[in-house]
Structures are given as C-alpha cells and as structure tokens.
Amino acid sequence: MGEEVVTFADVAIPEVHITRYKELSDMIHSLRKKLHENPEPSMQEEKTRHILQEFIKRHTTFEVVDKGVWFYAVKKAEKESGKAPIAFRADMDAVCGKDGKPGHYCGHDGHSSILCGVALYLSKQEELPERDVYLIFQPGEEIGAGAKICKELLTEKQIGEIYGLHNIPGYPKNQVLLRKGTFACASTGLSIRMTGTPSHAAYPEAGRNPAIPMAKLLLEIERITKEMQVRGNFVRMTVIGADVGSANYGVSAFEGTLRLTVRAEKEDAFDTYVNEIKALAATLAEENQLTIAIEEIERFPATENHDANVDKLFACAEKLQFPVTELAQPMRWSEDFGYYLQEVPGAFFGVGDGEDHAQLHTAEYEFPDEIMKTAVAMLVGLI
C-alpha cells in the first residue's frame, strides 16, 4: 500500500502496522478456534455465519450484507479511482466424517478467519483502499454447491478480479504455492444404475442380468481414460464401489450400480470425458435391454487460473519477500472456486501448512494458525 516493507515474524508487513498486526493476529486466532469448536455441514452453516458476522460488525468498519445461507462484507473506496472492485472468497463449511459428524478437517475455519483478518487490517488503516473490497463468505464448498449461489455477486457488483486460497499440507510452512493454468482439477461422482428383469438362476436367459454389461462398461471406461491420457489430457477414473444382485443364489441378478469418481485437468476435456462415459453406459444398457439411471454427485469445475492474475500473485509474494513454489502439476482434488473464474479474471493459490502437517480430510488435521499472517498479507497486498 505504498509503505516500506520489513520482515516481522517471518512475514513481511508494513512497518507502521507491526504492533497492530500482532493485536489482530491474536483476535483472528481466537476466532478460528471458536469456529473450530462449532463445525457445521455444508449448507447448514447457521452458527458459523452468526459468529463471523458478529465479529466483523463488532471489530471492523466493513458493512455486512446477509444473503441468507451466505453473506458478504464490503468496504467502499473513499473516492472514485476508476479501479474495478476486488473480491476475496472464503469457505465456511466443515467436512463430515465417517460417523456423519462435521469437523473442520479441511481448514475452512482458517480460511474464514483470514478474510476477517483482511477486514481487521483494512479497518485499522488510516487511508481507505482505492477500490471497493468485497469479502465473500461462502457455504457448501465441500459439496460443490456454494460458489454457484454466490457467483451472481460478481456481475451484480461488477467485480474486476477475485482471489481465493487453500492451506496445503506437505509443503513448507508459509510457502506461497502458485500455478498458471489449472490449480485444482474438475471432478464429479457418477452413479450408474442398470436394471433388467429377474429369473431363476438355472435359467438366466429368461431374465436380463446387468452384470456383464457393467463389467464391459468398466473396461471401456478404462480404455477411454487411457486414450485421453495418450492425447495429453490428465483424466482419472476411480472406482468407489459396485454392487450387482443379492445374496440369493437362486435368483439371477437383475439390478446393479457402479459408482465412480472421475476427474480432469481441463474443463473442456472433463466435459468430453463425462459425456463419453454417459453415452457408453446408455449404449450398453440399450443393447442389453436394460433401463439405466445416471446421477452426477457433487460436480466441481476445474479451477483454471488466469495468467495475469497469477503474475500479480508472483509480484505480491516477491514484494513481501515470501518464498514461492510454482507447482508443476495441478492439485487432483477439486474446488468450486472454479465457478468464479468462469465469470471474472482471478486466481487461486495455496499456502503451505508444513511438510509433516496432517493431511486434509483426516481426523488429525487442524489448521495451523501460524500461516494466517502470510495469507492476510498476500490478500492485502493484492488490493
């Protein structure tokens, strides 16, 4: 923001705000712990929203706008500068474990606290930002539902650029992780159910059994996958489960379900891949006189960064003297932030949790508070 930058606690921040930053870091660490103690499933983040909204209203000069299942906070520019508004997004939901109970095993409590840190930091500045700043607090990221709801704000407020981030275990703590092109892959679950007619096991020809067509389908999907990989596309199919028939050894199977997760680096390749799988399944069902039902579960778009915005992240990290790793491959996991990048330019980046930090979506995982100051400084530096 035009001030001299110095190193403080491994994070470069404006010199005049060192004391203030320590104060706000204590506040956002306490906030994160409170969120961590109150995890809520996707699209049910009622208490989480209340905690975050009250924090922003009480401690910052940002205006809170409640949109029901989500909200945003905005700081208007003091005077017209001609710069388009900028937006940052955090997710609020928790992961549901095997027991169905939610827990913040992905770090969304940290992401939301980081955005509150941005609001705190900007509220303590003597000079207001030269552009409107929007902070989007999004529900339902874990199921790919939230960004589709919130993205309308980008057009409504004529947002010029948007940024988001994720904490990532396995990389040095406070390392900024950047990538041009795809940062996180597109993915969807596929449930393919085929239904025929039953018969006595002694007379299988009298019925219609989906077992062989489903086996052929799986082999054909593997063939399609390899062909697309040979053409230079990163695509991947994982069998999640399969069941055909029952434990009744006197009855020929007549219904079965194949469950897959498929993913791809590029959105266009992903569309082709999914459509080919659906078409192949439909053809095999028709050839064998089976009815078919195909369901997509939790579809995520590819998070495809815009080069100019990644360049801006590189410049910001360099100015703040942060170490940077340029990722050679996209993350195989998915992020619904890609929906925003289909609307306006922007970029998604990572901050390392530490090489030995517990992996995401495990019971041992908890967001490391030490990386919040890196994330806050990066986002503020982008304004």
Rank of each mutant, 00 (worst) to 15 (best):
16 V>E: 15
333 W>V: 08
138 Q>T: 03
142 E>H: 01
187 S>N: 06
156 E>F: 01
39 P>W: 04
238 T>I: 15
110 G>M: 00
180 K>L: 01
127 E>A: 14
47 K>I: 03
173 K>F: 01
215 A>I: 11
113 S>C: 10
74 V>W: 01
23 E>M: 14
124 K>V: 06
104 H>D: 02
310 V>A: 03
76 K>A: 08
64 V>G: 06
138 Q>W: 10
27 M>N: 09
6 V>A: 07
86 I>K: 13
248 N>G: 07
241 G>R: 14
40 E>T: 04
335 E>C: 02
107 G>W: 06
292 I>L: 10
193 R>Q: 11
93 D>W: 06
37 E>P: 00
169 P>W: 07
332 R>E: 12
203 Y>C: 06
53 Q>K: 14
199 S>T: 01
9 A>D: 12
17 H>C: 04
159 I>Q: 03
282 A>H: 05
205 E>N: 15
331 M>G: 14
7 T>I: 13
131 R>W: 04
148 K>D: 10
15 E>G: 01
32 R>Y: 09
290 L>Y: 01
299 R>S: 06
104 H>M: 03
135 L>M: 11
192 I>E: 05
360 L>M: 03
211 A>L: 13
47 K>G: 03
358 A>K: 00
218 L>H: 15
100 G>M: 04
209 N>M: 09
220 E>I: 13
